[in-house]
Simulated scan of single mutants.
Amino acid sequence: MPIEMPRGLPFSVDTWTPNSGRKRHHFLTHAHRDHLQGLPARSFYPIYATRVTKIITLRHLPQIEEGLFVEIEVGKTVLVRDPEGDFSVTAFDANHCPGAVMFLFEGAFGNLLHTGDCRLSPDCLQKLPLKYIAKKGSDICLDYLFLDCTFGRTTIDMPNKESAIQQVIKCIWKHPNAPVVYLACDLLGQEDILVEVSKTFGSKIYVDKSRCAECFQALLLIAPEILSEDTSSRFQVCT
Rank of each mutant, 00 (worst) to 15 (best):
G152T: 13
T239L: 15
K209P: 12
G152Y: 00
S203N: 09
L120K: 01
L188K: 04
P159L: 13
A49I: 04
I133H: 13
T57K: 10
P40C: 13
R24F: 01
T15G: 05
A164T: 09
L125I: 10
P129W: 07
R153F: 15
L128N: 02
T115Q: 07
S203P: 02
K136I: 09
I133P: 02
T231Q: 09
H25E: 01
E73I: 01
A218T: 15
R22D: 10
A41L: 09
A108K: 15
T115C: 12
Q37M: 07
C238N: 02
P62T: 13
V207G: 07
L79H: 05
P179E: 10
I205W: 11
C149N: 11
A94L: 06
H32S: 06
S203F: 14
R51G: 03
N111A: 12
S121M: 03
Y206D: 13
L183F: 07
Q190T: 09
D157F: 00
D117E: 12
F216M: 05
K54Y: 08
P122K: 10
N160S: 09
R7Q: 11
H30Q: 10
H30F: 05
V89P: 13
V89F: 08
R234A: 01
Q63I: 11
T77S: 14
L68P: 00
H32Y: 07
P83K: 11
L130P: 02
A223H: 15
A184T: 06
K161M: 10
F151V: 06
Y206G: 11
T90N: 11
Q166P: 03
V89L: 12
L187G: 02
C212Y: 09
L28D: 01
S12E: 14
T77K: 05
P98D: 07
H25R: 13
K136T: 13
F103N: 00
E84T: 12
N160I: 07
P98K: 10
V80T: 06
P98Q: 08
Q166M: 11
D230M: 04
W173H: 13
F103S: 00
R234I: 10
L39S: 04
T50G: 05
A184W: 00
V70E: 14
T57C: 11
V181H: 07
A218Q: 08
I172S: 02
F44W: 05
T57L: 08
L61F: 15
L194H: 05
G107A: 08
V237W: 11
S12V: 01
P159M: 11
I55D: 09
P6E: 03
L130Q: 13
K199A: 14
K131Y: 04
L125N: 03
R7A: 14
E71H: 11
N111G: 00
I56W: 00
D93V: 00
V78H: 08
E73K: 05
I156H: 02
W173K: 04
T50K: 09
K131H: 08
N19G: 02
V181M: 06
T57G: 06
V168K: 13
C171S: 12
D34P: 01
S203Q: 14
E225W: 15
L183E: 08
T17D: 05
D123L: 03
Y132R: 02
I56T: 07
V181L: 07
C215E: 08
M158E: 11
A91M: 04
G189D: 09
T150D: 04
Q63D: 15
